Structures are given as structure tokens and as C-alpha cells.
Amino acid sequence: MKKLICFDLDNTLIYSDKCHILAYNYALKQEKLAVPSKKFLVSLFGMPHYKLIELIAPDLDSEDIEKLTRLHDNILVRKTYKYSKAVAGTVKTLDTLKKDYNLAILSNSSHRNIILLLKGAKIDKNLFKIIIGNDDVKRSKPYPDEIFKAEHLFHTKADFMIGDSIYDMLAGKRANVKTIGVLTGHYPRMLLKKQGADYIIKSVNKLPQLLKEVNNK
């Protein structure tokens, strides 16, 4: 039986900051809300969307947060997903890994947005045996629900959770899964390590070599 590897999406397999920044900016302007600086906004990427919106628009109630989330998603679907780009070496790495592993995407984006962001980045969604978004589980990362769902569907324990953010590391630890941090996002090595990363690599294109080294120990 093939082993299971779980990947985050944004800033792990793809660069999608521009997609989300433009979508949030459009949504905030449409609702006549203040637009935060790019630096502040990207510092929040990786956390659940409702939590991010609470921080950029703290006066909104739960109904307004849900409305702004829908606006962001609709704008991403209609306009901004096309700015997604694959991290260098991602497609080659996934092609290599799928021979020996089942690959899953676990993301704090919705299932629909994941599919579109992959399309924008020209990554074949069929490289992944399963795709789980925040609307496929009750609680998204940093909770371990997405990992548990992937394990349930594959009837096997995940070997690794791979991502760029502290929320990926926390989810992996809570699921008792080894974690690999990548440095293609906005979280520094020290912070990923502090939140429990077992291994840290520059990007996913270094993953086959790391797995070879780990499996040979």
C-alpha cells in the first residue's frame, strides 16, 4: 500500500498571494471597508479565512464576516485565480512522488477555490488522489480535521503534513503526523521550528531527496 503525504496549497505548491490580495481588496472596497497594507495582509495568510477577516475588519459581526468571505471567493473565482503560479519544480516533484505515495491537498481555501487555483497555476488536479478544502470539514487548520479525513478516506495513517505556515505544523502535530515546513511562504524557519516542524526544506522541489534520506535511516 502506498504511503500518504498531505500538502498545503497556498505558498507550498503555488504562489497565490496576488490572487488573494486582489480578491480581498475588491471585496473590502465593495463593502466600503478600509483596505489593509499588503504587508499586514500577507502576514495573516495561512490562518482560517474567518479569523483573517476578524483581524482586518474587527468591527464586523459573524454575518458580515461570512458575506465578506463569499465576496472574496466569488472575486477569486471570476477574476483573480488566473494569477496563481506553481512554485518552481512543483509539477516535476509531484510526478516523481505519485509513483510511491498517495498525494492529498489539505487547504484552508474552499474546495472550489483549490481547483481553480490549481488550474491557474497549470497543475493537474489529477496528480492528487484527494482534495480537501475548508468546506469539506467542520474545522480547518490548525485543527487536524482535514488530516483525519484524508486518513479515513485512505484507510491509512498519513506519513507527513507539508506546508509553509505554523497552522500546517500545528495541524500535523495535533494529528500525530510528522511535519515538513517549506520556506516559500511568509513564515521564517525559526517560527516553523518553534511550532513543531520535524524537518524544514527550502521548497517542495527538495522533498524527494529529504524523503529518500528519511526512509534510509
Rank of each mutant, 00 (worst) to 15 (best):
M161H: 08
I115N: 10
D10N: 01
K98F: 04
K2L: 13
L170M: 12
H49F: 12
K119T: 09
M169H: 00
H111Y: 14
H49Y: 10
V214H: 04
K119F: 07
S16F: 07
F160I: 11
D64C: 08
R70C: 12
G163M: 10
I162Y: 04
D10C: 03
A121Q: 09
K32G: 03
H186C: 11
E213Q: 15
L97T: 04
Y187S: 08
P142L: 02
I21E: 01
Q30P: 00
P208H: 11
I130H: 02
D198L: 10
I53T: 11
A121E: 06
A171F: 03
P144V: 01
D100P: 04
F45V: 07
A197D: 05
N74M: 09
K149F: 12
A171V: 03
N134G: 11
V137F: 04
L211R: 02
D136K: 08
D168V: 15
L60M: 07
G120W: 09
G89E: 09
L192Y: 07
K3G: 15
E213M: 12
R174T: 03
E54C: 07
T12D: 07
N11F: 08
Y167I: 00
R70L: 13
Q195V: 00
A57G: 12
R112M: 10
S84G: 02
A27G: 03
K79F: 10
P208Y: 06
R112K: 14
L192M: 05
L33D: 07
K212N: 14
G172E: 00
I132A: 01
Y143W: 10
Y83K: 12
G133T: 01
G133A: 05
L44Q: 07
F148Y: 13
I147H: 00
N216I: 13
M47E: 15
G133Y: 08
Y81P: 04
D100C: 04
L33M: 12
D145C: 01
N205G: 01
S43W: 10
T179I: 04
E54G: 08
I200D: 01
V35H: 10
G196R: 02
K122G: 01
N102C: 06
I201R: 06
L97G: 06
T184A: 05
K206V: 00
I200W: 05
S110R: 13
K51R: 11
K129E: 13
I131T: 14
D73Q: 14
L117I: 12
I53M: 11
E63K: 14
A197I: 01
I147V: 10
A150L: 06
S165C: 05
S16K: 01
I56P: 08
V42Q: 15
T93Q: 13
A175V: 04
I123V: 13
G133L: 03
V87Q: 04
Y24C: 09
E63G: 02
A104T: 06
A175L: 07
R78H: 05
L4F: 02
N216G: 06
D135K: 05
K29Y: 07
L210D: 04
P188N: 12
S37E: 02
I105R: 02
D73K: 09
I180D: 04
E31S: 14
N25V: 11
L207E: 12
I56R: 12
Y101G: 06
L191M: 07
I5H: 03
L41Y: 15
